[in-house]
Design a protein around this nucleic acid. Structure first.
Lengths: 138, 138
DNA sequence: TTCCATGCAAAGGGTTTGCACTCTC
DNA sequence: GAGAGTGCAAACCCTTTGCATGGAA
């Protein structure tokens, strides 16, 4: 069942990340990783079930956590109720529509954050997140 | 039961925000609003029960939502499991300790975000959040 | 054959809600 | 006295976990 997928780039990306190949993981990887995308677990489950109706919710959550641990996707905690997973690997920032919950990339690599004070000696930087919250003009 | 509080500044702040005064709300306001503070609902409940043991969890959640709607506190969605409420009113940004969940203000008003592209015509800016995620140096 | 991944259902944690009682005004 | 606020418990939603089955190596 798996053999037919063996050559693809996507398979290599997963293997390079130390992830064993399964049909479910490949289906999710195709939806997530082939283009930049922002989805919740529930949205991903819905899209994946269009192709693979028997896919279980637990597998989606397990796979998203695995991908996140291996660095293939990033977890975003916006104001919404659920986590959003982002498959863009390069550093970048986000718009968050506070009414719809929609997340999009800020289309510019020229954004910079200036004036941050130095961290205490015993702390190290993990990541800088910039969230530009927007809404439809009323 | 309420009369003794009537004159205070805190009462005026709540009234100005259109919030009716109750003993529970005043107790929570004292803990939250008298100095800048970052707490989860559960932390606030614990602190408040030290003074008012019969206080219910629902009242804490209701009051935090009310205060947030009225602009007295701000909801922060960090990576952690629960929302953090921030009583600093002036615009400012945050450190988030990814190991402990601790939130602190960035001690500088000179931080600025440059290079943001203009928003589409039909969108308006709601808020810009900058989260500097840090961890203890290993 | 061995081990890990999957699917299902139940558990878990944070938050909200329904309803009767209490308090403010 | 009328209406809003409170407390309690149950409901809710998102996410994780336990366990038996199924597939990969």
């Amino acid at each position: 069942m798996i053999q037919q997928l063996m050559g693809s780039e996507l398979v290599q990306r997963l293997k390079n990340a130390g992830i064993a190949i399964t049909v479910q993981r490949m289906a999710l990887a195709q939806l997530l990783l082939e283009r930049p995308c922002h989805v919740t677990a529930e949205q991903l489950l819905e899209r994946a079930r269009a192709v693979m109706p028997e896919l279980s919710r637990a597998t989606v959550y397990n796979t998203l956590r695995l991908f996140a641990d291996k660095g293939l996707v990033r977890e975003l905690s916006m104001g919404g109720d659920s986590l959003v997973f982002d498959s863009s690997t390069a550093p970048h920032y986000h718009y968050f529509n506070v009414d719809t919950g929609e997340v999009t990339d800020i289309p510019s690599d020229s954004v910079q954050v200036l004036g941050l004070p130095p961290l205490p000696e015993d702390m190290e930087l993990h990541e800088v997140e910039v969230i530009v919250k927007v809404r439809a003009r009323s």
